[in-house]
Design a binder for these strands. Structure first.
Length: 235
DNA sequence: GCCAACGTTGGC
DNA sequence: GCCAACGTTGGC
């Protein structure tokens, strides 16, 4: 009975343990997909390049600079705990900052570990009346141990993870702003389908090609295109 | 509430 | 290392 959790939003301000790579271990998860597993390389993150264009490192792995992170804005109870966390909840926290805890998927976790201070992410509302992108936030603390994995009372407690070798990580995010208008999943999907047939920036968007990933990368082109939609009439 | 897609587990 | 069974995600 594996604790498998869904990605959840942040909760509260966090302590300040400054460490960027507490994790030592390899990542069991991605291998399961059979995509062929990547070698462990030395930190390929370039901390001095917070956001510009996505770039390949020497191993050919793309370093993404832009992200989309899903969270549920409507109440839902998991193990008796309400997992609701919408963008308004992030905005209401001290310093409008919180930790993105509760991610229990290896690929999503690995993307969080790739995140660099200052990078921007879309706040996506999932599993709700109107799914879509609500606003923008930025990464204000790079990956560190998600303490909720050890908390029996937490909705995302993971009995298989031990403090001396934690499985799960989180980052801190800070609210930046709402989008000028809500960009719904339906609109993004129409564009995705159109771009898939006629070509266009959203043809490979992870939101559709990797629908269940709760933390996902966007190319600079995808990010800029989505952001440009807020100045246009909904399609 | 349904259920398709897909990630994870564990037997072999 | 394969793969069937199982569990979760998340749109609809």
């Amino acid at each position: 009975m594996p604790p498998r959790k869904r990605a959840r939003g942040p909760k509260k301000n966090t302590t300040k343990t400054a460490q960027s790579d507490s994790d030592s271990e390899d990542t069991p998860g991605t291998a399961a997909q059979g995509k062929g597993k990547r070698k462990i390389e030395k930190s390929t993150k370039s901390k001095d390049r917070a956001a510009s264009s996505d770039v390949k490192d020497s191993a050919g792995k793309i370093s993404y600079c832009h992200w989309l992170m899903k969270s549920e804005p409507e109440s839902r109870f998991e193990k008796g705990v309400d997992v609701k966390f919408g963008i308004e909840d992030l905005k209401a926290l001290p310093n409008q900052t919180g930790c993105w805890d509760g991610v229990r998927n290896y690929q999503a976790r690995n993307f969080m570990r790739d995140m660099v201070l200052g990078q921007r992410a879309f706040f996506y509302h999932s599993n709700c009346k109107e799914p879509g992108i609500a606003g923008l936030m930025k990464i204000v603390k790079e990956a560190y141990v998600d303490h909720t994995q050890f908390d029996k009372k937490d909705a995302h407690y993971d009995a298989s993870s031990k403090p001396d070798n934690p499985k799960w990580s989180m980052v801190d995010v800070q609210y930046e702003r709402m989008l000028k208008r809500f960009i719904s999943l339906a609109e993004l999907k129409r564009l995705h389908l159109e771009h898939k047939s006629k070509g266009g920036p959203l043809k490979d968007m992870a939101l559709f090609t990797r629908a269940r990933l709760s933390v996902q990368p966007l190319t600079a082109e995808e990010f800029d295109f989505v952001l440009s939609l807020e100045d246009k009439e909904p399609v």
